[in-house]
Amino acid sequence: MSVSVDEQAAAVTIYLSGEIDLESSPEARKALLNAVSRKKPLVVDLGEVTYIDSSGIASLVEAYQKAKNAKLDFVLTHVGDGVMRVLSLARLDQVFPIRR
């Protein structure tokens, strides 16, 4: 998995790619929480994610809750079919703002 961050004046975009699993999700979680601490609207681009498990979903949920508490916008973009299946399995497709 790899993470890259693009911080603009208006928003922070995090690009996650590869396989987010138990081994790599701590890195994803750290990057997401860091981004929330920038106090800007957050865009999480999942276009290059080829696999995500419950620990990866948990990192997204935690970042989403922190962003919501801080009254920051939080949106998932480029959600592929594979990731979408996992989100819907966890019934999170109705919770996360998703821009496909």
Partner: peptide, 18 residues
């Protein structure tokens, strides 16, 4: 139960769901 929105505890749900 999935109604509670919190980070952990999804694993068993995935196993049964899949």
């Amino acid at each position: 139960p999935l109604e509670q929105l919190r980070p952990g505890g999804l694993g068993m749900h995935f196993i049964r769901g899949l």
